[in-house]
């Protein structure tokens, strides 16, 4: 389907930007993640797949600081981020979208993205209240950046509209723009294609590649197999909180354990 799909993982730089070391996450009696080790390399598109309830979203929640893991470490760009505050994790360069779209619904699309852009702004109360020059500059830059990102994801013509009035597919793309505005090294996408029609999915593939090509690493949760197989450099499969397989798309497609636990029928047979 495309050139990048076939690029072997070894061709990437190979330094891990994100490492999960022995992560276990328990909620009372529920073990959502069990001793997970995972290394995501810089510049790759890495997919996390598995049946519902396997613990995929929980991995995102642990990485972004929503939960502190019961055991294990999260290392991002060489330093530990587990236990850090959520906004600090974002400032260090991890941004995400949500499985259920969580935009600021009553703000305009542009404002939504500007909130993301503010993550690296330094204006305090005084600067804002007195309208100091650097505040104005940040405000201008933030706006320009937001407009550019809305253009990038393809929602620019609706930027003045209230977020909740956008069609579903645009809301998902807006969420991506908002996350990109925080200038992440690593972007986490939680089922970005959910609810999209085939054309939109096609565009989304292109968008994810474009994001990777701007030098970011993408970690992706998705159920749509053709999308996954089309763009992923590598794939890990979770089942009941454990990693049951990891490898290149072709390896995953033919892995017997994965077929039993998740794929059901071999993907190339369908």
């Amino acid at each position: 389907m495309s050139e990048t799909a076939g690029v072997p993982a070894e061709k990437k730089t190979g330094t891990p930007v994100l490492e999960l070391r022995g992560i276990t996450m328990r909620f009372g009696g529920v073990v959502a993640i069990n001793g997970l080790n995972l290394a995501i390399n810089e510049g790759e598109i890495f997919a996390l797949i598995g049946p519902n309830g396997a613990g995929k979203t929980t991995v995102f929640n642990v990485v972004t600081g929503v939960y502190r893991p019961t055991e294990g470490q999260v290392v991002f760009a060489g330093s530990r981020i587990d236990g850090k505050k959520r906004y600090q994790v974002t400032k260090r360069g991890v941004a995400r979208t949500f499985q259920n779209v969580r935009l600021f619904h009553n703000m305009s699309a542009l404002e939504n993205v500007m909130v993301g852009a503010d993550a690296h702004h330094r204006t305090g109360l005084a600067g804002a209240a007195l309208g100091l020059p650097w505040h104005r500059r940040e405000e201008r830059d933030g706006r320009a950046k937001a407009e550019e990102l809305l253009e990038f994801v393809g929602v620019a013509r609706r930027m003045e509209e209230t977020a909740k009035n956008l069609p579903y597919g645009d809301q998902r793309r807006l969420e991506i723009a908002r996350a990109l505005a925080t200038d992440p090294k690593l972007l986490l996408l939680d089922e970005p294609a959910a609810g999209m029609n085939p054309t939109e999915k096609e565009e989304l593939q292109g968008l994810i590649r474009k994001i990777r090509d701007t030098g970011r690493t993408v970690l992706l949760i998705e159920h749509d197999m053709s999308l996954i197989m089309g763009i992923s450099d590598r794939i890990a499969v979770l089942d009941f909180g454990q990693k049951i397989a990891e490898g290149l798309p072709a390896e995953i497609q033919t892995n017997q354990r994965v077929i039993d636990a998740y794929l059901g029928v071999p993907a190339d047979a369908s």
Partner: peptide, 8 residues
């Protein structure tokens, strides 16, 4: 929560 995760 979303705000905090967007760096606020």
């Amino acid at each position: 929560d979303a705000a905090e995760l967007m760096g606020v």
